[in-house]
Design a protein around this nucleic acid. Sequence first.
DNA 1: AGGTTAACTATTTTT
DNA 2: TAGTTAACCT
Length: 740
Amino acid sequence: MNQLLHNMNPQQKEAILTTEGPLLVMAGAGSGKTRVLTHRIAYLMSEKQVSPYNILAITFTNKAAREMKERVEKLIGERGKDVWISTFHSMCVRILRRDIDLIGYDLNFGILDDADQLSVIKTVMEDLNLDPKRQSPKYFLSQISNAKNELKSPRDLSKEFENEDVIRVYERYQQILFKNNRVDFDDLLVLTVHLFEKHPEVLTFYQNKFQYIHIDEYQDTNNAQYQIVSLLAQKFRNICVVGDSDQSIYSWRGANIENILSFEHDYPDAKVVLLEQNYRSKQMILNAANDVIQNNSGRLDKRLWSDRGEGNQIEYYRALDGDVEATYIADKISYMRRDSYDYHDFAILYRTNSQSRAIEQAFLRQNIPYRLIGGQSYFKRKEIKDLMAYLRLICNPDDDLSFKRIVNEPKRGIGAASIEKLTQFANEAELSLMASIDEVDNGIARATLNKFIDFKQMIYMLRSQIEAYSIAEFIDLVLRQTGYLEMLENENTIEADSRIDNLGEFQSMATQFEEVDLNEILAEEESEERADELSTMTKLVILLNDLMLQTDTETEEEANESKVTLMTIHAAKGLEFPVVFICGFEDGIFPLHSALEQGGDELEEERRLAYVAITRAEDILFITNAQSRYQYGRRSANRESMFIHEISDKYLNKTGIETRSKRPSFTLQEALDNRSPKKTIQTITLTTDSSWKSGDKVLHDSFGEGVVVGVKGEIVSIAFSSPHGIKKLMGSHPALKKRG
DNA sequence: AGGTTAACTATTTTT
DNA sequence: TAGTTAACCT
């Protein structure tokens, strides 16, 4: 038997063997869909002699793409590198990088993140005299995003008698982006559709290239993505979509569950494979998940089953208040990890980010190391955004958005008033800000004008030197010449030191990109170009766009550290843990107020979220909540989540207040019996010169007491109590002392 | 220009 | 509670 089909169940085999024609794989949680996908790709190459260049696989996250790539390579070897495995957005960037000039943009276009989007919206609202209190910038942003996901232009909206203000803001917003040669995340999809529609020869090229198409998490596609897939698959119709309508949790971002539900309608000759066997969880956990999801209407009735054993009841604990709840979780972890589990076997899942605080405090008190997923991402940090703005401005001096961001950073005595004045002139003269500096009649006072001129000369000086350097060297030059590094150095605070470290990290990322990643990208694209033949400017533009799409920066070592994981349920999709705690299981929090009031689709999405949360657990699941807790600074009481009542009592072991305990929490021996077959636990023991190790208690001159939660070379991550949170500090910093 | 204080609001966020 | 933003003061 073919090695690639080894250990596959009949449905999985069928999914792998059905290489031709449309195929829908309805894959329940934990049913091994990634395994099916990777083996299918390998099978196409090894058995069907399909060239890797003719295979496309699309995922939603970079992480998923990376993992899939690794697994395909493991199965098939080096040739696996040549398969396009990427996210929708990276795929679009690559397509647009070749041909976006055909639809009017410059090939050196830059990508805009959501913070940038919001600031554009704010200026547009100012120009149009719209009151942000009546309609918030965020409202406009989401309306625009929705429109784009539906592939609707401002003109299309006006036909539908949409909110007049939305149309005006959308129109203006789009003009500004175009003028600055910038595109937002949604544009990447929209413009790719436009490109395909207006230039059939481009579409034909990609249709011929991608003869075998795979889409993961198909239930999360929005209409623009759907359109891209449809266009690409039109010719060969070898399209394999994998997904689970019960795990559709991003409809508020435009994901359209109908896409997967109507696949058979779109492709009447489609074969459908249902994967119901779960390889992740004990049956008890699946029973609870099945119980909950059954309450949703209009779904394909799937029932997950497992042969991993019955397992324990779900531990349901209702606490007196939020602190007691957090303490309960911390206690359980301390207890269980003594001999059965490692810290990294635990995950704490919550509905909203703000819930993490209470847990963090309890963990800090009890010295439980943790990693918090989400929150401020690396690329949203000010210093990184500033550096990227400099680099973008150097590549494209007409980029007003970048110009405004850094013209007075570090302080050059150019204030808001002067920038406003220059902007006024630039708008009237239809010039970029940079170009307006040279105009004699721009009305800027001589003293200020000189400052602008100095700034411009500096940028152009850097621009003229770029080709003499590698990207990493050039970044160094930029940081020095602009005075940015000096500004941080002079600050002399720990804060500034860590910013400098971050910039250094950016630099090493750039080196890695230039020397390794770029060639892989080019190889995948079958490009004749080679990295070392590209100009530094071109490489830099590619790097900047690549980084904009990169949000998860956690390295493999960091992910494997022995720490408890704290994250939202949304962030947990696709992951699994031996022991899972779902906390704050209360009406108003989970499901959220709004969903509870609105009912209908909103409530069903919350229920799917509960389903996702429950199915993350392998061996043991805890569900907790609190009778009362602090919310928005006031104490409020919440009822138990309606979802807990949907789980049959026989699957629950209720403890805590207001619930009768049928029996004590399971014993340690039971916990041991329920362990997964021993996994190779990779506890990374970092050997460092510094004497710091996780768990050490420290005293910091300004942050007070804290606990070391990670050590990476000279850098020690220390968790301080709120409001400081986790800080990365030099282990040798004089402000830091070990506490006994 | 730039820093400080008072007032306001409150999901989730793969890219 | 806490993060953000607008108004206010130096």
